[in-house]
Design a protein around this nucleic acid. Structure first.
Lengths: 210, 210, 210, 210
DNA sequence: GATGAATGAGAGTTCATTCAT
DNA sequence: GATGAATGAACTCTCATTCAT
């Protein structure tokens, strides 16, 4: 039993170390020896816990997704209104990511690899983004049902919410001074929920400005 | 009298080939021999036109940026209203990218590299995104001045527009079936301009729904 | 408990192998794979012990110089007269070199490289030859002080002793039949010490010594 | 006829350029393009006059040897005594070389290549040094015949004269401050002819001369 | 279980040489 | 005759992975 626990926790330690160095130098520029050194172990030991460098990436990704999903479930289980939940989720994702910039970097490393490495089946961004969109779509639908959200919004609105988050990360990583990532939550919800133009008196979509 | 060669156009050809293979396999998984084969030339020939693999990436990037900037200038020089220009730019970027998915992939390869490769000074996403935001910011300001845009929008709204585009690409690349990228233009402008919630009768920002 | 390896002695083995192939084909015509095969190891293994091909050359050189210097010290510590020490050193250098022709070849490879390779700072023939000359100069001075050596010899006599040795190697390498290198010791000392011309009755050389 | 002359003189020009760059960077570090640039011609043009890089080296060597031999013949044809001719030759070789250090460097590049490059048959140092020695040997013999040179000098004395010259070059190239090469002529002749030790009253060394 | 010495496939890059113009 | 664009063999060096200890 303790062996079991040790084995598992050592795996976690290595994964933590891997994510740290991946975040620092990127997956491709990271050598196995870098991960080993960061973890304070021997190079060969990694292979006792992971079958390959790609496996390390997959495992890191899976753990990351696991964390995200747990967070989401917790938030969704709360007592808030659908629109409020959207606000909270956006805020939470941005806040936690702002604390761990390297996670964002690793996330996009995942992305690039899932796109280019044919061998890499484990990392499936198609599913991830579909989940994000579905989650958002459901909340929006609930918002519509409750009369809090316009019923005439475009079909891809959920995707836009996801885009807002992801695009924010892309910009912030390359220029953390451009804006405070944690502040962006308010901007996103504010703009996405309210729009930026002055609605005409009679309707609020395509045909403004009499 | 040596062989007459249009060095510049051959350079372009190689660059085109490079972008095609980068788009197909990603920069890191692309070997120089792949680029050579795609261009129908010998491996060594590439080095007659580019000093290194990184130089190839930089050059591809610079050409890409050059194209983008020219497009932007053309659009901005048009007779449209600021809000309309935002619409047009978004639509144009999405439409052209939809035609060339590989360019999007290369774009994010650029991104990953600029973030992780310390030697890669040429590719500067900080500047790119700053340019995008500034361009949007100015149009929004003009919109406000003209009374077409609310004056109380958040400071980071321009960044949100950029995020919407970038995030759309991220999702579409990994799942082209999720939505039609060209359609997203309408969604983005519709939502960002009008918001999704039903504004209260008396105001339209923070304190709605009495 | 990792494999126990005497890193130092393995390094020596590789160095020995390297010197052998350098001697056989010259540094420039030697590929790393040649060294590896000579050492009976894999190509990559060399890089576990030496950072580059140039490093291999430097290390070989340093070890060579170390050997030489130790030999010199031993000889200089002996009970012989200065002139006798010169004899012994010359004889020793020639004898040992005659046993290891490849060392002479490597030595001149060092020489060529130190002259042409700007990156090669480690190999400093300026210092080496200066050491050789200084060593000889001191012995000559002692010989003069003891009245065994003429006090009117030219300033650069020490350099000439060095030349005699080095030039002997140059000739012997390209034509080992021309003379027996080990025999040359006697020739060098005999001629350098006694000269070849019949001294006039009153003086011997340009006209000093009344 | 003018074509003939042009062809020949252009060959010479290329050879001059080649020797200059060989002297500057060494044969191995010199690329054909370097030679072409130094000669102010195109890369391909070299191959109109020389069949390969090695051929360029051979040709440079042959011309060098031709020059040397002509100089020697001139000197040997003079009216001087044998011993004086030795003096003059040594002095001449050192003086001219001091003017053209790059020639010395090229000379040792020749040497290294003749030793290591099995394909390089053209450059034959065995013959060169044999010639030098023979030339010296004959002069010494004449000196003996005339009673100017001791008859009991060692068999390899001629080789020693050659060594003195060659070794001087080796030292001077790596440290031109160590001594003035042109001065060495006097040292060499002085020491080699007279020796450095004080002869006993009745004989000088091995016990001859009653 | 842990290690790191050993490995070789494979990468980017160089450059002597060729040859169409 | 002169050229330099094109080429690919050959090089050095890297690093994920293996495996004896």
């Amino acid at each position: 039993m303790p062996k079991q626990i040790d084995k598992q926790s050592k795996r976690e330690e290595i994964l933590d170390a891997a994510v740290r160095v991946f975040g620092r130098h990127g997956f491709h520029f990271t050598r196995m020896i870098d991960v080993a050194r960061e973890a304070g172990i021997g190079k060969g030991t990694i292979y006792e816990y992971f079958s390959s460098k790609n496996d390390l990436l997959s495992a890191a990704f899976n753990r990351y997704m696991h964390m995200i999903r747990q967070d989401m479930e917790t938030l969704l289980a709360g007592p808030h209104s659908p629109v409020e939940k959207i606000r909270l989720i956006i805020q939470h994702v941005l806040d936690t990511s702002a604390q761990n910039p390297e996670l964002i970097l690793v996330f996009f490393d995942f992305w690039i690899h899932s796109v280019h490495d044919g061998d890499q089946q484990e990392i499936n961004f198609k599913t991830i983004y579909a989940e994000y969109r579905e989650l958002t779509r459901v909340l929006i639908q609930e918002g519509i049902a409750r009369g809090e959200v316009r019923h005439d919004i475009p079909a891809n609105t959920a995707a836009l919410f996801v885009s807002a988050i992801e695009g924010t990360f892309l910009q912030w990583i390359v220029d953390p001074q451009a804006f405070r990532i944690a502040d962006m939550g308010k901007t996103i919800t504010d703009v996405l929920l309210n729009g930026i133009i002055i609605p005409s008196r009679t309707d609020h979509s395509e045909g403004e400005n009499p």
